[in-house]
């Protein structure tokens, strides 16, 4: 596969090469290579158990891949993510959300967003010394952090609930808060693990808009695992299809929609008999 979809000759933001990950006898990811461009939404799709979340965990440092290289091309040169400790990956500019939302449930919504700015604030507080002494240097930084948090609270419509415990929010709000929290860490690449799971159609629509605005207004790249084909087809520029840990197709939404291998993977070998319309819709064949 070529990286023809990427603009110009600049290296892609994220370059995954020959990634493999094995759990016991199960080859969860098998020699996977793909790229994600800056200011683009790249989606990874595939049936359940195709290894999507494992790929995410390798990129974001929760698993160490057996083989392969994950490169993030930053302004300050390439960073090899597979070698970094988990927490350094966020510092390098890759932040993720989780399939089963992981908020700090007993902390307030605002605090969740401030924790995301930890590294920045920690430096500003001179590792707490300036903060303890109450220097204005830290107070300024904190004010700026709160302002950034407020900007995101406005954006996801949770301004009124800023002081609530995050665990008390409704499900859809928790999803959006997790994305806002990730954004407060100011990533260059945001990895979203099934952000539309459990959302109703209206919420999915709002999510699509939010994600597109992240790309267009914040100028970041998004890498997304998603089962909701409506969302995927609508917003992504580039789609990678996994099955049994291997990449079986890659391309624009239009190309993927008509790819024979993809249809086979989703519907089984005998994809000959006519499918019920809702299934067709599901795979974007409407």
């Amino acid at each position: 596969m070529s990286a023809a979809h990427l603009s110009g000759g600049a290296p892609p933001l994220l370059n995954v090469e020959h990634l493999s990950m094995r759990f016991g006898g199960l080859l969860a990811v098998d020699d996977l290579s793909f790229q994600a461009g800056a200011r683009e939404i790249t989606a990874i799709i595939g049936p359940n158990g195709a290894g999507k979340t494992t790929v995410f965990n390798c990129i974001t440092g929760f698993y160490r891949p057996d083989v392969g290289r994950v490169t993030l091309n930053t302004d300050r040169g390439p960073r090899y993510l597979e070698r970094l400790e988990g927490f350094r990956i966020a510092r390098a500019g890759v932040v993720r959300t989780f399939q089963n939302i992981r908020l700090f449930a007993n902390m307030s919504v605002l605090e969740n967003l401030l924790v995301a700015q930890h590294n920045h604030l920690m430096r500003a507080s001179l590792f707490s010394i300036a903060g303890l002494l109450g220097w204005c240097r830290y107070r300024r930084a904190e004010k700026a952090a709160v302002a950034l948090a407020c900007r995101w609270l406005e954006r996801i419509g949770l301004m009124d609930k800023a002081d609530w415990d995050a665990g008390r929010l409704a499900y859809g709000d928790q999803r959006r808060l997790e994305i806002a929290r990730a954004m407060c860490a100011q990533p260059k690449l945001l990895c979203l693990d099934e952000p539309a799971a459990g959302l109703n159609p209206r919420e999915s629509m709002a999510l699509s808009e939010l994600l597109q605005s992240l790309r267009d207004e914040e100028g970041i790249a998004l890498l997304l695992i998603e089962h909701d084909m409506g969302v995927v087809m609508q917003i992504s520029q580039h789609i990678i299809v996994l099955d049994y840990g291997r990449k079986i197709a890659e391309g624009s939404p239009r190309a993927i929609r008509s790819d024979a291998a993809v249809i086979r993977a989703y519907l089984g070998e005998n994809g000959t008999q006519p499918l019920p319309p809702e299934v067709m819709e599901d795979v974007g064949q409407s």
Partner: peptide, 12 residues
């Protein structure tokens, strides 16, 4: 609250 989420946000 959640060590995994903290790590993913860059907390050592």
């Amino acid at each position: 609250e959640d060590e995994i989420a903290s790590r993913s946000l860059g907390i050592n």
